[in-house]
Write a protein that binds this DNA or RNA. Structure first.
Lengths: 176, 176
DNA sequence: GATTTTATTGAACAGTGTTCGGGAAAAGTC
DNA sequence: GACTTTTCCCGAACACTGTTCAATAAAATC
């Protein structure tokens, strides 16, 4: 529904027509537009996290598994551009927290990082929390995905190989 | 002007009133709202790039200089949240290109990376263009800045130290 | 069958970006 | 100085947005 026509031009009237409802009827189920976006964000959240989980299981624990999760993150953002952008748009009104609340993609990545450290394949500085390095790795992939989806969307180039090499090199800096 | 009231609630009528003009008068100088945002983006672009240039000159060539530029990027995003978000919002209609057109912050970072490689302080894989590793490093910092500015804006924590450590570790993976 | 509850709607309101005809003020020309 | 032309700006309007609310039809309950 939303996938085809972007996020900017996503009006309640258009959504209502697509759903066979009147615009006012939407307010029976949602408080406002932000609540609708929140609901969509939840859907995207689990879709992305299951994709990441699959990627994690495809590789043995260690830095390679972390790399697989990050590359899957990038692939999802590339294949599902609008969904990815919705997830990180400011239209929703979620109070995001890192650890408790189920930002599931983060949890999946953190598990992979934890396992890699347990395997002795990844070094974590003294005083650096597990969430910290997970956040850092997430941010690296997120920045690539975000730049390609917005700022560099008109920049015709194949980022795949560059992304992969850079992530591998970044993780190289986390070797024991 | 725009700094105080965010980007979402930035109406042409409000801008016109603040400028002492009528809303219609703005169209004498700009084609549309996107053109206004483009103009602001240009201003932010040079503001950010001069800040990065200063940071580059504060350190000798090498990975430390690259780190300084990236940290300055993060500091700017933190101190000038709205400007930073405007720069990467989809409201503008710029056709961004990496090399030619003056996305100046990228150029500044690329110069630092180039110098670091020339100093023998940074390794670039065979077949990897200079733009590629610059993009990767930029994306890492950009992801951190973007997450803090949007998705994690309610997450009260001090990211500064984590950001610094992670960037240093990432660059550690690029040692010769 | 009567009454309450649940869905759904059309019309309206305030706000948005944008267009257009018209009217002042400034600049240029004889 | 008078006349024309260009520059500048505004009010009103249009189509759109999210949102509210009284009214209505359908369903559920008693």
């Amino acid at each position: 529904m939303l996938r085809d026509h972007g996020l900017e031009s996503f009006s309640l009237r258009a959504l209502a027509k697509a759903a066979g409802f009147s615009p006012a009827a939407l307010y029976e189920y949602f408080d406002n537009k932000a609540a609708i976006v929140d609901a969509v964000q939840d859907l995207v959240d689990v879709e992305l996290s299951t994709a990441l989980r699959e990627a994690a299981e495809s590789e043995p624990p260690g830095r390679r598994r972390v790399t697989a999760v990050l590359l899957r993150y990038l692939a999802y953002a590339k294949e599902n551009r609008e969904e990815f952008l919705v997830l990180f748009s400011r239209l929703g009104s979620k109070a995001q927290s890192l650890q408790d609340s189920p930002h599931q993609p983060f949890q999946v990545l953190m598990a992979a990082v934890k396992d890699a450290e347990a395997e002795g394949d990844l070094r974590i500085r003294d005083g650096m929390p597990l969430e910290g390095v997970t956040y850092g790795l997430w941010a690296a992939a997120h920045g690539m995905a975000m730049l390609q989806a917005t700022y560099l969307q008109t920049f015709e180039a194949d980022f795949d190989l560059v992304d992969k090499w850079m992530l591998i090199d970044f993780l190289r800096g986390l070797r024991p």
